[in-house]
């Protein structure tokens, strides 16, 4: 009997090892069209689609966990999730406290203004009310341009609402997100415009962040990402969310 139990436990353990590993990805689903919440409260967008494709190609299971942006990096070392898939730009500052996958997307910072506003270049932003989501590269850009007057919001959507309500002159965020609000959003596309893109000193890429030293997760993600790019799946997902441009 004892032997039977023991062997049963062994089999069970083996089975669980053989089973596909599950990686939990944290996403702040308030960043359309990269990560957003649909009518069924599901996290959808370019990011989730890419993660699922990577998981399929990389031979692991992926699970998306909707997580508030402010503090999303704090959960990584705590082990609340294995990776962050939330349009995280790879920066030197962030590299000090986490590891990044290969880049999966290039972004520039876009400046959203009210339709008809006289803001055409970075110099026009001086002394203006500029807002962005807290802890994003958009906020860092705002801070560099207008200093401590830069206003940080919990979500980019709140900053956009303040822009539409006339309390801000400009909002800085990833170009994909800026274009989504200014060009395709039914609520805002008529009143907001994408003024210009900030020319970066060096190209800015998005990557999946993992806990520092978590080589296993990084390997799985990179392997899957490579396969997804090679198979043309990446272009398909890109086309789905960004059309032909």
């Amino acid at each position: 009997m004892k032997k039977l139990l023991l062997s049963l436990v062994c089999v069970l353990m083996l089975a669980s090892v053989a089973q596909a590993k599950t990686l939990v990805f944290a996403s702040d689903c308030t960043w359309p069209p990269m990560e957003m919440t649909d009518a069924n409260k599901q996290c959808v967008g370019f990011g989730p689609d890419l993660v699922m494709a990577i998981a399929k190609a990389g031979g692991f299971k992926a699970e998306i966990k909707n997580t508030a942006w402010d503090g999303i990096f704090a959960g990584l070392p705590m082990g609340k999730y294995d990776a962050i898939s939330s349009s995280v730009s790879i920066t030197d500052e962030r590299k000090k406290s986490m590891d990044f996958s290969d880049p999966y997307f290039e972004v520039k910072q876009g400046v959203v203004v009210k339709e008809g506003a006289a803001i055409k270049a970075e110099a026009d932003l001086k002394g203006k009310a500029v807002g962005a989501q807290i802890g994003t590269t958009g906020f860092f850009a705002a801070k560099r341009i207008v200093g401590d007057a830069a206003k940080s919001y919990d979500e980019v959507g709140l900053a956009i609402a303040d822009l539409a309500n006339g309390r801000l002159d400009a909002v800085i965020c990833d170009d994909a997100v800026a274009a989504d609000y200014a060009l395709t959003n039914p609520e805002y596309s008529k009143t907001l415009a994408l003024a210009f893109l900030i020319v970066p000193e060096k190209p800015e890429y998005l990557g999946f962040a993992v806990k520092k030293g978590n080589k296993d997760a990084l390997e799985l993600i990179n392997k899957g990402l490579k396969a997804v790019k090679a198979s043309g799946e990446y272009d398909k997902i890109f086309k789905k969310w960004f059309g032909s441009n």
Partner: peptide, 11 residues
Amino acid sequence: GREFASVTFSY
């Protein structure tokens, strides 16, 4: 405080 933490991750 949140702005400081969001850049440095020293929550």
